[in-house]
């Protein structure tokens, strides 16, 4: 910021120094930069994504379909799709659709279905509830109790209420709790590879 004050005394008048042309400066600068960067380029590159919360959570849902075994009766046919149902507001946008696009699990094509109510649950294998009020969670869990349906939510104490997997954020990382017995009761088998991870907390239902 300049604050030239008017100056009243006369003296020498320096002349303007001609500037180098833009092109000459650009070329000179680029050359110096190339030399500097070349020294530093020997490291090998590996790509790393910069994901959003729900891109990561969508990936978790995708993985869960691989780490959980559904009973054969859950599928109408051996090549029937494995359906992920979203109940309530959809926080994923396109992320979940992208995550499952073109994927199959044991011959079952992965598809996403957005549900208006629990009445549309037929044919779903994984139910994602988002976060919801405890009373609503209880009513949904009661409604799906006998179905071979993997229930996943972000609601606090979801597993204590009888839900199977709760996704949550800790230090901006996505973690999860699991309720193995709730899965067993629904005829699902959660892989020990998933349950034995160090940061996974195993939780029992506190509700009959």
């Amino acid at each position: 910021m300049s604050r030239h004050a008017p100056v009243l005394l006369p003296e020498e008048t320096p002349t303007r120094v001609p500037r180098r042309t833009a092109l000459a400066k650009l070329v000179g600068f680029a050359l110096r930069l190339v030399v500097a960067l070349t020294f530093l380029s020997e490291l090998t590159a590996t790509a790393a994504p910069s994901p959003t919360e729900y891109q990561v959570k969508a990936t978790f849902l995708f993985h869960f379909t691989h780490f959980v075994e559904w009973p054969a009766r859950a599928f109408a046919a051996t090549n029937a799709p494995l359906t992920i149902g979203l109940l309530g507001t959809d926080p994923f946008g396109e992320a979940l659709d992208s995550a499952v696009a073109g994927e199959t699990v044991n011959g079952h094509k992965l598809v996403v279905k957005r549900l208006a109510s629990t009445n549309e649950l037929a044919g779903c294998h994984l139910l994602f509830l988002g976060s919801a009020e405890p009373a609503f969670v209880d009513s949904v869990l009661d409604a799906v109790k006998s179905l071979p349906l993997l229930t996943v939510s972000e609601t606090d104490r979801f597993c204590q209420h009888g839900g199977m997997i709760r996704l949550y954020m800790a230090d901006n990382k996505v973690k999860f709790d699991a309720n193995r017995n709730a899965a067993v009761q629904a005829g699902l088998r959660m892989s020990s590879k998933m349950l034995n991870l160090p940061s996974v907390k195993l939780i029992e239902s506190e509700r009959p």
Binding site: A48, P49, E53, V56, H63, E94, S98, D171, L197, S199
Partner: peptide, 22 residues
Amino acid sequence: TNAVLQQLKKLSLEELMELKVA
């Protein structure tokens, strides 16, 4: 989104849980 998810799917659950989100 698609590219990010293709990368994410290559990560294990354990690696995913160590990933910071935006």
